[in-house]
Design a protein around this nucleic acid. Structure first.
Length: 611
RNA sequence: GCCUCAGUGGCUCAGCCGGUAGAGCGAUGCCUUGGUAAGGCAUAGGUCGGGGGUUCGAAUCCCCCCUGAGGCUCCA
């Protein structure tokens, strides 16, 4: 429907002659005049016929909105076919215009309607203020907001699930602060304190990452130390999933919206995507690896013997056009890196088994990253009724109380989902790992496998991000240090610390010894550097503290003589005497089974650049 | 996206009822050659986020834009 709205001093019309499609009218409607009126020239279009009630509803809402702003006395609906080149049938148009009149009257507006299907003369005087001339295109679909409101009418139920028992969220005895905070957040009870999350300052201060004003909002630049941590985390997830049988792939970051499945999947995401137009195509930037993974799986010949089958990709990058006011630090970005695992399962039963395995995998990442996750399992009501025992069993793998959300109806593509969240300094969750059972996408993307009956069947697909986005992991680690700052010196886990061991020569004559020691440690796959700057020991100690270096060795005359090293251990804030062998063992013990990369910075601090 | 606040050397910030840009850290140079969280002295470094306006004169007042923070909203 097309509308042209004119706020007029007056409008006068007079019917001249009938057309074939004219409506029957009484004599008094043959002419008319309306003072101070909002004249709504209206053309009803073909596509309005699909949902006449919807278009009437949306048009009335829009007209009422404008009417209330300009202070006119009357709304005059004036049929005006010339606004559109794709008109509806005259019968539909009459009905819709008539319904609009009734709808607007029911909103307590003074409404008049000019007859349909007559040749008319008219005279109008436009007031000429900024809102006096407006045009609108009204679509029959419900607006996104209304759709959301409707869905939200049906509220989820929240329970606490602990040791096979359900508890009321208000009566449960909370043992930990973090868990209570997640419950508060889910129930919309979190009070905001108005502070900046500390990780934003820390990421800049520690030379990990910074904002890039010349890019779009929410795209970061990464300095060498930050890049190193990202790479280590990428290696970590790669090992984690490939050890469990997943096969790494890499897929494009942009997709053609002419592809039906991709378009439908993308439409669901609505406004929040980057789009670009080339000469011949409209492309979107991926917001996850799903597109590429699904296309690969759709083109792969799979049989029941191959299942479950998992492919893995680290999405550097995924793009989401988050609203500008929502983008913050490492927590919410427009360009981010997400490990994305897609597992094809034969049926629901297999997907639930696999889900169990992935719970353990996600739980493991909390341990390896030294992060505390609080957990929520979300299920549709249907799924819960049929798989109650399994849900309780899945919850028990976590080994502590979790939240259970039961959604009355399936809103999205998943029927069961588990989210793991670290709690930040301000008591708000940072969503990290997630697992979802997807029952929709296989069909939409044409993914099939041959089952044991030799039938082509659509599988169930599990989406899983074992750590959540790499940026959020780093953000969570920084938030954790801020929380613990009061009781403990802040630091990263040793395997993620850019410098693991720093050697501080006291005077120039100790430098060769320091370099030799560093070299020995480097050969043992330890990231070492040497603070060779002509500064006092006190200052070098202070600097190494600011850089959160886990082990700092001061070498002077004593060390040159007796081969014993005085090691400052950040973890315990103690000084301990040990030899280099013991130090190497200790670092190896700290980083056991974790990935290693060399330090991509110059060995001597005197040669380093400050970012 | 909306509302509120902010943007001054590489970093943290002062100056802001208009009158020639300041400090600390960092950097550089010299002195100090040292034992566990800032040794001393000196030097360099700023189109005061960008653009426009008011004014004899703008970091300071006004308008627009960009970037950031908080809140609202949102996160498939």
């Amino acid at each position: 429907m097309r509308l042209l709205l004119i706020h007029s001093d007056y409008i006068k019309y007079k019917t001249k002659s009938k057309t074939k499609i004219a409506e029957e009218i009484t004599n008094e409607k043959k002419e008319g005049e309306f003072k101070n009126s909002l004249v709504v020239f209206t053309a009803v279009e073909k596509k309005d016929e699909k949902n006449p009630d919807g278009v009437v509803e949306n048009a009335a809402t829009e007209i009422n909105d404008i009417f209330s702003k300009i202070g006119a006395e009357t709304v005059v609906i004036y049929p005006y076919a010339h606004l559109s080149s794709s008109l509806s049938s005259p019968e539909s148009a009459k009905k819709i215009l008539h319904d609009m009149e009734i709808k607007l009257s029911s909103m307590n507006l003074n409404v008049a309607r000019v007859p349909f299907g007559w040749y008319k003369s008219f005279e109008i005087s436009c007031k000429g203020h900024p809102l006096s001339e407006l045009s609108r295109t009204i679509l029959p679909e419900k607006t996104e907001k209304e759709t959301n409101e409707e869905l939200n009418v049906q509220k989820s139920e929240f329970h606490i699930l602990n040791k096979g028992q359900l508890y009321n969220v208000d009566e449960f005895q909370y043992q930990t602060n973090d868990f209570e905070k997640l419950v508060d957040y889910e129930l919309d009870r979190t009070k905001s304190s108005g502070e900046e999350p500390p990780h934003v300052k820390l990421m800049k201060e520690k030379n990990l990452a910074g904002y890039e004003p010349s890019a779009d909002i929410g795209h970061l630049r990464w300095y060498p130390k930050g890049r190193l941590i990202r790479d280590l985390l990428a290696d970590y997830v790669y090992n984690l999933v490939t050890e469990r049988g997943a096969m790494p792939v890499e897929t494009p970051i942009m997709y053609d919206l002419q592809d039906e499945a991709i378009r439908v999947h993308a439409e669901k995401f609505g406004e929040r995507q980057y789009r670009m137009q080339t000469k011949s195509k409209e492309l979107m930037l991926r917001y996850a690896c799903c597109f590429g993974a699904f296309r690969i799986l759709a083109d792969t010949f799979i049989t029941w013997k191959n299942l479950p089958l998992a492919i893995y990709e680290l999405s550097t990058y995924s793009f989401r056009l988050e609203k500008s006011g929502e983008v913050v630090g490492l927590k919410r970005l427009r360009g981010f890196t997400m490990p994305d695992l897609h597992t094809v399962c034969a049926d629901l039963e297999q997907s639930m088994q696999e889900f169990n395995n992935q719970i353990s995998m996600c739980d493991q990442t909390g341990e390896d990253l030294q992060l505390n996750y609080e957990v929520i399992i979300r299920v549709t009501d249907d799924f819960f009724q049929e798989n109650r025992e399994w849900v309780f069993q899945a919850a028990s793998i976590i080994g502590k109380p979790i939240i259970l959300e039961i959604l009355p109806k399936r809103k999205h593509y998943w029927i069961c989902k588990m989210d793991f969240a670290a709690i930040d300094y301000l008591g708000r969750p940072m969503e990290n790992p997630t697992i979802q059972i997807d029952v929709e996408s296989a069909e939409r993307f044409g993914i099939t496998y041959i089952d044991s009956e030799e039938e082509e069947t659509h599988p169930i697909i599990i989406h899983c991000s074992p750590t959540g986005s790499i940026e959020r992991v780093i953000g969570s680690l920084l938030e954790k240090t801020a929380i613990k700052m009061a009781e403990k010196l802040p630091m990263f886990p040793v395997w993620l610390s850019p410098t693991q061991v720093r050697v501080l020569p006291i005077a120039e004559r100790h430098l060769d010894f320091a370099l030799q020691l560093a070299d020995d440690l480097i050969k043992q796959n330890i990231r070492v550097d040497v603070d060779d700057r002509p500064e006092t020991v006190g200052k070098k100690i202070r600097n190494s503290g600011n850089e959160w270096v886990p082990y700092v060795i001061v070498v002077g005359d004593k060390e040159l003589e007796n081969n014993q090293l005085m090691v400052n251990i950040r973890e315990s804030n103690e000084k301990t005497l040990m030899n280099s062998k013991e130090l190497i063992n200790r670092v190896h013990h700290d980083t056991i089974n974790m990935p290693f990369r060399k330090l991509p910075l110059s060995l001597k601090l005197s040669e380093r650049v400050n970012f």
